[in-house]
Amino acid sequence: MDHDPDERAPASPAETLRLIEAGRAAAQRDFQPDPRLTYGPWGVAWLVGFGLLFLRFGPDGRVLLAMPELLPLLVLYVLLVAAFVISGSAGMRAGRHVRGVSSIQGLRYGVSWAAAFAGVVVIASRFADLLPDAEASLLWSGLSVAVVGVLYIAGAATWQSREMFTLGVWITLVNIGGFLAGPGWHSLAISLAGGGGMLTAGFVEWLRWRRGQC
């Protein structure tokens, strides 16, 4: 058995430690999804989708860039669905074949998103009918983004992620600020500060992830 290379001990303590650290970093990278895939697509969806909403439905009903009325919302929804698919499959890939507390945690966190948005849809669709168009869309986006901010903070508590916590607090503040500024401005705030914040958080977390320190 001793001729088996697998049975051979590492050559030196330094080599042993190097093996431990390299193995740990590789496993950590493997068990955590790439932050570029979990944050990036959402950041792009907000940046582009809310950016188009701002350009088409600007402050005080101004049209800053002429385009079909349905286009911004259509683009936003398509990008959000794409983000859901991309980040979801990255998460599932990282979590596949892992059973136990992590899978229960992930499942319950997923359910919290579904539960929150079920509430948003029921409440907003009832009241949106009673409001002028600009106010109705502010209600929809304000409620939705509020939920996203809170769920990022909750996710940070679940996974002990500093970036996620900062992002959740940031999104909450941007949402409140934009909401108070009113229709049009809210879209601009979510596009630049919200989408930009997500891309930044993804980049910062990726710097740690690629070294296997997540």
Partner: peptide, 10 residues
């Protein structure tokens, strides 16, 4: 060892 306590890997 990278797995969290309470997790198992297939």
């Amino acid at each position: 060892s990278v797995l969290r306590e309470g997790d198992r890997l297939a």
